[in-house]
Computed example of a mutant assay.
Amino acid sequence: MFFSQAGARPQMWEVSPSEHKKWVEVFKACDEDNKGYLSREDFKVAVVMLFGYKPSKIEADSVMSSVDPNTSGILLEGFLNIVRQKKEVQLYWNEIRHIFTAFDRHYRGYLTLEDFTKAFRQVAPKLPERIILEVFREVDQDSDGHVSFKDFEYAMNYGQKRKQHGLDLLKEGEPL
C-alpha cells in the first residue's frame, strides 16, 4: 500500500519549555491539597484544561490502570508522559486531516479517483496508473467510488502500523 511508504508519521517533537511549564502548572493546579499526584477526578480536570474535553470512563480507567499500585494516583512524570502522548496523537490526526483536505480540492468531504490521480501526479508523477487505482480501491472500503475521511484515516493508520512492523505492501524496487 502506498500510504505505508509515504503516509503521515506520528509526530516526534520536542516539547517547548513554555509548553512543559504549562503542563506542570496544570498538574499543580489540579493536584488538590498538594498530594504530589493526580487522582482520577484531578486527571479529568487536567485533561479538560489542556485538551478541552472530558475524558471518557474508558480513557480514565486506562490511565488509572497504568498507575503504579504503590501510589495513589498519577505522579508528575507519568502525567507529563500521558500529555505528551496525547499531544502527539492530536498532531498526527491533524496531519492526516491536512493531507485529506489537500486531496479534497472541491471540499466535498470525500475523495474520488480523480482527486487521487491529481494528487499523486503532483507528488509522484512516475507512479503507474495501476498503482494509483490499486491504492484507491484499497482505501475505498465500501467500494462506492468515494473515500471518506474515516476511510482515509483508517488507511493512513493501517499503513503506519504495517510500516512499524516491516510489512509494507509495495514490492521492493517498485517505483513511486
Rank of each mutant, 00 (worst) to 15 (best):
A8C: 05
V147E: 05
C30K: 03
R97A: 13
K57R: 09
K161Y: 06
H146W: 14
S143A: 14
F27N: 05
T71M: 12
P10T: 04
R9S: 13
V123C: 14
V67S: 02
E41Q: 09
E114G: 10
S39N: 09
D61Y: 05
L167Q: 13
I96Y: 12
V47G: 06
L38N: 07
S4L: 00
S56D: 01
S18G: 13
V67R: 06
M49P: 05
D31Q: 03
S148L: 05
W13E: 11
F43V: 07
F79C: 07
S148A: 02
D142W: 14
L50P: 08
D31F: 06
K126W: 07
L111H: 01
K163Y: 11
G52W: 06
R105S: 09
P125H: 03
K161V: 08
E129V: 14
I82D: 13
V45Q: 15
E95L: 14
F116H: 10
L75Q: 13
F149R: 08
F149E: 04
K57E: 11
G159S: 08
L170I: 02
F136D: 02
F79L: 08
D68A: 00
E25A: 13
G73F: 07
E88G: 12
N157T: 00
K86S: 05
Y53Q: 10
K28L: 09
Q141P: 08
S4N: 03
T112A: 12
R137M: 03
H20I: 01
F103S: 00
K161A: 12
D115V: 02
R121F: 01
A46V: 08
Y110E: 08
I96S: 09
L76Q: 08
Q85S: 12
W93H: 11
S65V: 01
I131L: 14
V15E: 13
D61R: 06
E41C: 03
H165N: 15
G166A: 03
N94C: 11
Q160A: 04
Y158C: 03
H146S: 14
G109S: 08
F3D: 07
D168E: 15
G36Y: 10
K54C: 02
G145H: 12
R84D: 08
F152A: 03
S65L: 09
F136K: 03
D151P: 00
G159Q: 00
F27R: 11
S66F: 07
E41R: 12
P175S: 11
V89H: 12
A155M: 10
D142F: 06
R40F: 05
L167F: 08
E25C: 10
E134C: 01
Y154V: 10
S143G: 03
F100C: 02
R162F: 02
V45A: 14
F149M: 06
A155N: 10
A29E: 10
R121G: 06
F43Q: 04
